[in-house]
Computed example of a mutant assay.
Amino acid sequence: MTDTPGTVPVGIDPTMPSTARVYDAALGGKDNYAADRELLDRMIRDVPEVVEMARMNRAFLIRACRFLADNAGVRQFIDCGSGLPTAENVHQVVQRIDNDATVVYTDNDPTVLAHGRALLVDNDHTHIIDANVFHPAEVLEHPQVRATIDFTQPVALLHLADLHFYPGDPAALMAQYLDALPSGSYVVVSHGLNPENEHSHVARKFEAIYRASSGSVLFRTRAEIERILHPSMDVITPGWVIPGEWWPDGPNLKPWTPGEQCVWAAVARKP
């Protein structure tokens, strides 16, 4: 994306970093501005493996969606805080398995909404809505969600790398979503982790960078993250793990970097 004033969509401040655009830059996308790339460069200076962390998280999302569409037979997906369209979006993964699979992307970043709507204009089974994922009712009661998602049938709810931006109790937030999901639904979560060991400095660096730049992020402990899913949920094997350890496509031949060990993820089923 160029930084020419005339090319900036209405309602977007290119001088302020956006979480979605920074993530896009980390994944090699082009829908970002100088301020986003500057923040990413700062992250890379302090945490060199930040790009690998972003790619690992994205690869986990793809594998989880493939599992849900293929093995679990889920045909409805709500992607909360979806971010900018990039290679291998959720709808591309699941609609490769079933053309009629339905996907609703949810975000309130103007850049995400503008690019998402342009990408999905010809896809009748995929939609993007403007809603704050930290206000569950805003998502669940959105007219497009009510018209698109059949809440009598299993739904896959995706919360990838968004809940660590929520300053409140993520378990209470998730409970509102879970209450609305029917039996047989699935939840996919990834979250920044403070591993409470020699790698905790990575989490603290991330938190400091965001406080100084574009808001706040909170890397929670394993116990705090695992509370996000109610104890009644059936966590799918291998349980809570580093995203790269969740049913990888092949053996891992190198040790996980300190940064990669600062993300915690799981897929769970509602009985």
Rank of each mutant, 00 (worst) to 15 (best):
M1P: 06
P5Q: 00
G6Y: 01
V8C: 11
P9V: 10
I12D: 05
I12C: 07
T15N: 10
M16H: 10
R21V: 08
G28D: 09
G29R: 04
Y33S: 07
E38I: 15
D41T: 09
R45W: 03
D46V: 06
V47C: 14
P48V: 00
P48I: 00
V51Q: 10
L61T: 01
L61G: 02
I62K: 09
I62Q: 13
L68R: 04
D70Q: 14
A72K: 14
A72Q: 08
Q76C: 11
Q76W: 04
F77K: 04
C80F: 10
G83S: 05
T86P: 03
T86H: 06
A87I: 11
R96M: 10
N108M: 06
T111D: 10
V112I: 00
A114F: 12
A114D: 15
G116M: 07
A118V: 07
A118S: 09
L120W: 07
D122Y: 08
H125Y: 11
I129N: 02
I129E: 03
A131G: 04
V133Y: 09
P136A: 12
E138G: 12
E138H: 09
A147W: 08
A156E: 12
H159S: 10
L163I: 02
H164N: 12
P167D: 00
G168H: 03
D169H: 03
P170T: 00
A171Q: 04
Q176R: 09
Y177P: 03
L178E: 13
D179S: 12
S183G: 09
S185E: 04
V187A: 12
V188M: 12
V188P: 03
P195W: 10
Y210P: 14
Y210Q: 15
A212S: 15
E224I: 06
I242A: 10
E245V: 11
P248C: 12
T257V: 14
E260T: 02
V263K: 08
W264D: 08
A265L: 00
